[in-house]
């Protein structure tokens, strides 16, 4: 969808269609999520319809899509909070549980997803979307799911494997954690799973870029930058000394061994 379309206001029906297309072609990048969120904001006159569409898509059996839609909620909540659009804010508040259940189904928790959702919830909480208690409550819920997901079923697999060694291939197919959909039998889903996993991996990398963006972010605090620098600056270490040695030897045109011999006191590089 061209940007112009995403930015323009549409009537309810058209907006619904456009939004569907938008979600269908959603990528994992931040830009895509922002675009969708902006579309929602621009067409807030039919916000209810669009929200419905989003919820519908969330129901679809595609975990990758769900996570991407979760990205839209994150962006949307930020935009809505900025513009104090009460309607969306309330909708997100009301539906947060629903989102979470969709993305991190309690019966098949996926640690990676839970991590994403927890991060998102934290972000929304920082925006002021949730009260402290609510945020804590949601976090607890997610934490619980996380811990439950940490029991690897490998032992079970092993047990099954021992019971029926001949069934290994079959067993493996069955036991492969079916993270991408709940309705169909897992065996049938394997090929798609593989693709989805790869897609997920790529999308995670895409999302990871956003995470890296924040590495460089510095707050407005007066000393924040220097503090950050101070914190990140390590003590002088072997590598620094080596670099110094290296440069010195180059400057002097002597070998490093020679340098060490001549300047024993100055080269406190730990003996290898």
């Amino acid at each position: 969808m061209p940007t112009a379309e995403a930015e323009a206001e549409w009537d309810a029906f058209e907006a619904r269609l456009k939004f569907s297309t938008l979600l269908g072609s959603l990528s994992a990048s931040v830009a895509a999520a922002q675009k969708a969120a902006r579309f929602l904001m621009v067409n807030k006159h039919c916000g209810e319809d669009l929200f419905e569409v989003a919820l519908e898509w969330l129901e679809k059996d595609d975990m990758n899509l769900r996570i991407k839609i979760w990205g839209i909620w994150e962006e949307l909540s930020e935009m809505a909070m900025r513009e104090q659009h009460v309607d969306y804010i309330n909708r997100i508040r009301d539906n947060i549980q629903h989102f979470m259940d969709n993305i991190c189904p309690p019966e098949r928790p996926i640690a990676a997803n839970i991590r994403i959702v927890r991060k998102g919830v934290e972000r929304m909480h920082k925006l002021g979307l949730f009260s402290n208690t609510r945020a804590k409550e949601l976090d607890e819920m997610l934490k619980h799911r996380t811990s439950s997901s940490q029991n690897p079923d490998l032992d079970a697999v092993e047990a099954a494997h021992k019971q029926d060694p001949g069934e290994e291939a079959h067993d493996m197919k069955h036991r492969w954690p079916n993270a991408f959909g709940d309705n169909k039998p897992s065996g049938a889903k394997r090929p798609t799973d593989k693709k989805q996993i790869e897609q997920r991996i790529e999308e995670d990398r895409e999302r990871h870029k956003r995470l890296k963006e924040s590495i460089w972010q510095i707050g407005n605090g007066e000393h924040e930058e220097s503090d950050k620098m101070w914190e990140e600056c390590s003590d002088i270490d072997e590598g620094d000394l080596m670099a110094a040695e290296d440069e010195t030897s180059e400057m002097l045109g002597i070998s490093i061994d020679e340098l060490r011999r001549r300047f024993p006191a100055q080269t406190p590089v730990a003996a290898v």
Binding site: I110, A111, P152, I197, I201
Partner: peptide, 15 residues
């Protein structure tokens, strides 16, 4: 291992 992002998708299924 279990904390890795894709452990849930890629972890070994059979020993």
């Amino acid at each position: 291992m279990k904390d890795l992002a894709w452990y849930d998708f890629l972890r070994p299924t059979a020993k």
